[in-house]
Measured scan of single mutants.
Amino acid sequence: GKMTGIVKWFNADKGFAFITPDDGSKDVFVHFSAIQNDGYKSLDEGQKVSFTIESGAKGPAAGNVTSL
């Protein structure tokens, strides 16, 4: 299901971020390909987002990341 959280930090050079979920679970890795914005895919620290949890090769990662 959809979860919500806050972007903890975003590394534009490497194209990934971490989200701190609102439910208090541990921070979730985000690859820029999961960001659903049109055009430039970036996130801002402190931004509120919704996302799903996908199981990636290196463990859980956020999918369908959308700005709220």
Rank of each mutant, 00 (worst) to 15 (best):
G1W: 08
G1T: 12
G1L: 08
G1M: 09
G1N: 09
G1Y: 09
K2S: 11
M3C: 12
G5A: 01
G5W: 01
V7G: 00
K8H: 08
K8F: 04
W9Y: 13
F10W: 08
F10T: 15
F10M: 12
F10A: 14
N11C: 15
D13T: 08
D13H: 06
K14R: 08
K14F: 09
G15I: 02
G15V: 02
F16I: 15
F16E: 07
F16R: 00
F16V: 14
F16L: 15
F16N: 02
A17Q: 01
F18Q: 07
I19N: 00
T20R: 10
T20H: 07
P21L: 06
P21H: 01
D22M: 07
D22R: 01
D23H: 03
G24V: 01
G24H: 04
G24P: 00
G24W: 03
G24S: 03
S25V: 02
S25I: 03
K26C: 14
K26N: 07
K26A: 08
D27R: 03
D27S: 08
V28Y: 05
V28G: 01
V30Q: 00
H31F: 14
H31C: 15
H31E: 14
F32N: 03
F32D: 02
F32K: 05
F32H: 07
S33W: 09
S33Q: 07
A34D: 14
A34H: 13
A34S: 13
Q36D: 12
Q36R: 07
N37Y: 13
N37V: 10
N37Q: 10
D38N: 07
D38M: 08
G39I: 08
Y40P: 09
K41S: 12
K41G: 10
S42Q: 13
S42C: 15
L43N: 01
G46R: 02
Q47M: 14
Q47N: 05
Q47S: 11
K48C: 13
V49G: 00
S50Q: 10
S50H: 07
T52M: 12
T52W: 13
T52S: 08
T52K: 07
I53T: 08
S55Y: 05
S55K: 06
S55V: 11
G56K: 03
G56R: 02
G56D: 15
G56F: 06
A57W: 11
A57Y: 14
A57S: 14
A57Q: 10
A57T: 14
K58Q: 15
K58G: 15
K58P: 15
K58W: 14
K58R: 04
P60N: 06
P60H: 05
A61K: 03
A62H: 08
A62K: 07
G63M: 09
G63F: 03
G63S: 12
G63Y: 02
N64I: 12
N64D: 14
N64V: 12
V65T: 11
S67I: 15
S67P: 09
L68V: 14
L68T: 14
